[in-house]
Computed example of a mutant assay.
Amino acid sequence: METLRLCVKLTRLDKFPLGSLVIFWPAAFGVTMASYAFNTSVQDFLTKIGIFAVGGTLLHSTFCVLNDICDKDLDGMVERTKSRPLVAGTASLTFAWVLFLGFLSATLFLLSFAQPLAVSFGMLSLPLHFTYPLSKRWTWWPQAWLGISNGWSYFVGWLSVAGERSSSTQVKATLAINTYSWTIYFDTIYATQDRKDDTRIGVKSTARLFGSRLREITALFAVATIVLMTSAGVLNHHGTPYFIISCAVAAAHFVWQVMSWDTENDRQSGELFKANGNLGYFIFLGMVADYARQRLEVM
Rank of each mutant, 00 (worst) to 15 (best):
A176Y: 01
S167N: 04
I177K: 09
E164R: 13
Y180S: 00
V156D: 02
Q170T: 14
A176Q: 05
L175K: 01
G157F: 08
T179A: 14
A176L: 04
T183D: 04
K172I: 12
D187S: 08
E164A: 14
T169E: 13
V171T: 11
A176C: 13
G157Q: 02
N178H: 12
T179C: 15
V161K: 09
T169K: 14
A173F: 02
V161Y: 08
S160L: 09
W158Q: 11
S167P: 01
S181T: 15
G157Y: 09
T188Q: 01
L175H: 15
A176V: 12
A173I: 11
L159P: 02
A162I: 04
N178E: 15
I184Y: 03
I184G: 01
Y185P: 00
S167T: 15
V171G: 01
A176P: 05
T183G: 04
S166K: 12
A173D: 05
Y185C: 10
W158P: 03
D187M: 09
A173S: 10
T169Y: 14
Y180G: 05
T169V: 15
S167E: 10
G163S: 07
S181F: 15
A162C: 00
N178G: 15
V156N: 00
W182T: 02
V156Y: 07
W158E: 09
F186V: 08
S168M: 08
L175G: 07
L175D: 03
T183P: 02
I184E: 03
T179K: 03
W182G: 07
S166G: 08
A162Y: 13
Y185T: 13
F155M: 11
Q170S: 14
T174W: 05
F186Q: 13
T188H: 00
A162P: 12
T169M: 15
S166V: 07
Y180M: 11
E164Q: 13
G157N: 02
T169W: 14
L159R: 01
T169F: 15
S160N: 07
G163N: 09
A162F: 06
S167H: 10
S168D: 11
S167C: 05
Q170I: 04
S167G: 11
V171K: 03
F155W: 14
T183N: 05
G163Y: 06
S166I: 05
F186C: 10
L159E: 11
F186N: 13
S167W: 09
G157S: 03
Q170A: 14
S168Y: 09
E164L: 09
T179D: 06
K172C: 15
Q170D: 11
S168L: 07
W182A: 08
I184K: 07
T174N: 04
S168P: 08
S167K: 07
L159V: 06
E164V: 12
V171L: 00
W182L: 08
G157M: 01
R165L: 13
K172N: 14
T188L: 04
V161C: 10
A162T: 08
K172P: 04
W182K: 01
A176D: 00
K172G: 12
T183K: 02
L159A: 06
G157K: 00
W182V: 08
Q170N: 11
